[in-house]
């Protein structure tokens, strides 16, 4: 009959140490998986937010007057008036507008009236309302673009319209 020879005292200690090391490694690995997953989600959010913000800028670029601009801005759900007008629309976790408040896309509009027309300073940004788990750097802002558009009072390419 075969006999099992085992130095149990040393072996037990070594195995407990191995389990502890394995647990530590496992926790680090799971943390890495978590970071990878949420970094991917954040990258996807950045792409989606980028498409939404760029589309809004393209729409603003195509507008011919400040009246058209404010008509477009009124399609945003929430408005806060002040020295800088703020318009916000909300999206759920699947980026569907109006069915949740997981993400917010905000337009900040600052008018500068001059004798020749109106210069509009525009800042569009997308934020996530709840922070990303596992990721500390970067904060909750996902994407932001700043630009200006000038609507001339007279003349310009849209005068004849």
């Amino acid at each position: 009959m075969n006999k099992v020879s085992l130095n149990s005292k040393h072996s037990l200690l070594e195995i407990i140490l191995s389990v502890l090391i394995f647990l530590a490694a496992g926790i680090i690995m799971l943390n890495c998986f978590g970071i990878a997953r949420f970094t991917q989600i954040r990258a996807n959010d950045k792409v989606t937010a980028g498409a939404i913000i760029q589309s809004d800028f393209e729409i603003i670029k195509s507008l011919n007057s400040t009246n058209e601009l404010y008509e477009f801005l009124n399609t945003y759900g929430t408005k806060e008036s002040g020295s800088i007008n703020t318009y916000t629309k909300y999206y759920d976790e699947n980026w569907i507008q109006g069915s949740g408040k997981e993400y917010a896309v905000t337009i900040e509009i600052d008018d500068e009236n001059t004798s020749s027309g109106t210069l509009i300073n525009i800042n569009i940004s997308a934020q996530k309302n709840n922070p990303y788990p596992f990721i500390k750097a970067g904060g909750q802002q996902i994407y932001s673009i700043e630009s200006k558009k000038f609507f001339p009072s007279f003349g310009g390419v849209y005068e004849d319209k």
Binding site: T48, A51, S55, D56, E58, I59, K61, S62
Partner: peptide, 9 residues
């Protein structure tokens, strides 16, 4: 089954 939109001026 997911859609994405882009406006271009």
């Amino acid at each position: 089954e997911e859609n994405s939109e882009l406006y271009l001026s």
